[in-house]
């Protein structure tokens, strides 16, 4: 007799649990304001990434086209993937001495794992995170970027 009641209790509890589940989905079905989907290409204008968002490594330049990179190469040695290459140049200073400056700060975005060690270890805070995240290109070579802008020079107070 016990198993007889158990049979009906099973049915009852089973149906009850199924209805509980249906209540959840049914509630969401009838509350379309809870939709969380973001319409990506449409919301491009309003889409704001967080300040700390790791999009790519950039080298901030001032309005006078000056950057803070001394070309010391610490970021290059700290990068675990070899995604930073620094090509140095020497210029003649007015006092006759030769001085190292940076010629090209090459950044291979395709090899970067966004660990942030270059930015953290940079002694002159020359590098920073950029918020750009749409990196898709048709040509792989376009992912190799030169971070210092053409004709840029080092900030005065850093070089001294």
């Amino acid at each position: 007799m016990n198993s007889f009641f158990q049979y009906f209790a099973d049915i009852f509890n089973g149906v009850k649990s199924l209805l509980t589940g249906m209540k959840v989905t049914g509630r969401y079905f009838f509350s379309p304001w809870e939709i969380v989907t973001q319409q990506y290409p449409e919301n491009r204008k309003t889409l704001k990434m967080y300040d700390r968002f790791k999009g790519e490594v950039i080298m901030p330049h001032t309005a006078n086209n000056e950057h803070r990179c001394t070309g010391c190469g610490i970021c290059e040695t700290n990068c675990p993937n070899g995604s930073i290459e620094i090509i140095q140049d020497k210029i003649d200073m007015p006092d006759g001495k030769k001085k190292r400056i940076i010629d090209k700060h090459i950044y291979h975005l395709s090899m970067c794992t966004f660990c942030g060690l270059c930015i953290k270890t940079c002694p002159s805070d020359a590098l920073a995170w950029g918020q750009e995240f749409e990196h898709a290109v048709f040509d792989r070579t376009k992912l190799t970027k030169i971070l210092n802008k053409p004709g840029s020079s080092i900030l005065k107070d850093i070089s001294e």
Partner: peptide
């Protein structure tokens, strides 16, 4: 559409 609304999505749009 039904499954999208049940799953908090918009579905095909």
């Amino acid at each position: 559409k039904v499954c999208a609304f049940m799953q908090n999505r918009v579905g095909p749009n």
